[in-house]
């Protein structure tokens, strides 16, 4: 069963296309990261999933059915800004959330305990600090132990301790078999927390799939010789080479992590009668891979 399937989803704001024919599917039990720079359409995409934004084209299904209030009741959602009635206390706010989600009131105490708000649960929401507001939002999203959780930039604006805590929460949820869909502009975060990733750029889906396939760490060796075309012919025979790319006046050779061996490469060229006039090994950072992914298209 797919938790979420998105088919050719588009959203226009006037002439701006926030989403362009995005299609992907989120299987059950994964931690699915939607990765993209600011303004790439991540929040718009999550907005269409939670029915606060109406798509201009395409469709989506939740639990293999057309989305409805019923399907949203099975999802806990944490948005960038916590939305609560400012004149109500934490408990009263969660009573409303529980009533809409058709969950019992008895769980409210547990989730407040979980986010360490028990002592302030009778205070008005407007008296809370930003951190407390965010914690209440986490409590609301965990209420009723939903099967699926949606997080929009969950660590935005948190201090390092808060970031570590929320990542731990996500890991625990994943271990308990929950499906998590999160948006993030932090590659590092997606790499640490997610099992699957979809990369968005200016509303377009660049790629999606398991993290280890998409965000492989590659090693690059740059070489050059008098005749680049001849070098390219020869070097294609070199073992373990993933791909070669011509970037005058050099060739850029890609290897998967741990496979790039400059001295073996030098010997190989020498044995084939080519003398290199440039040889330099570069370890590619994830950031450059991300920038490459988001820039090349």
């Amino acid at each position: 069963m797919a938790i979420l399937t998105v088919n050719n989803l588009s959203k226009n704001y006037g002439t701006i296309q926030a989403l362009k024919n995005v299609s992907f599917s989120v299987p059950k039990g994964v931690v699915f990261g939607i990765l993209g720079p600011n303004g790439s359409g991540k929040t718009t995409l999550l907005g269409t999933v939670t029915d606060i934004i109406k798509p201009t084209g395409g469709s989506l299904t939740l639990f293999d059915e057309a989305p409805s209030g019923e399907s949203r009741r099975r999802i806990g959602t944490l948005l960038e800004t916590p939305n609560f009635y400012s004149y109500l206390s934490a408990t009263k706010n969660l009573e409303i959330t529980a009533a809409i989600k058709r969950k019992g009131k008895d769980e409210i105490r547990d989730v407040l305990e979980m986010v360490d708000l028990t002592g302030r649960s009778t205070f008005r929401f407007s008296s809370y600090s930003l951190g407390m507001k965010q914690r209440l939002a986490i409590a609301a999203c965990l209420l009723g132990d939903p099967e699926v959780l949606i997080f929009d930039e969950p660590t935005n604006g948190l201090d390092p301790v808060g970031i570590a805590e929320i990542r731990q929460v996500m890991k625990n949820l994943h271990t308990r078999g929950k499906t998590i869909i999160m948006a993030s502009h932090l590659l590092d975060e997606v790499e640490k927390v997610c099992t699957h990733v979809a990369i968005l750029k200016r509303g377009q889906l660049l790629t999606s799939g398991p993290v280890e396939e998409i965000l492989t760490k590659e090693e690059i060796i740059e070489v050059s010789s008098a005749d680049l075309d001849q070098l390219l012919q020869v070097i294609k025979e070199f073992p373990n080479l993933s791909r070669a790319e011509k970037a005058e006046p050099i060739l850029r050779l890609y290897f998967s992590a741990g496979q790039g061996n400059p001295s073996a490469l030098n010997d190989f060229c020498h044995n084939h009668g080519i003398s290199l006039n440039h040889l330099s090994a570069k370890r590619k950072s994830l950031e450059s891979r991300f920038i490459e992914l988001t820039n090349n298209n």
Partner: peptide, 21 residues
């Protein structure tokens, strides 16, 4: 307008109300 100010009109829908409701 409180609902719009607090953005709870969004939250109600996210939590599982239909817009019509």
């Amino acid at each position: 307008t409180n609902e719009f100010n607090f953005k709870t009109h969004r939250q109600n829908i996210i939590d599982g109300w239909e817009r019509k409701q």
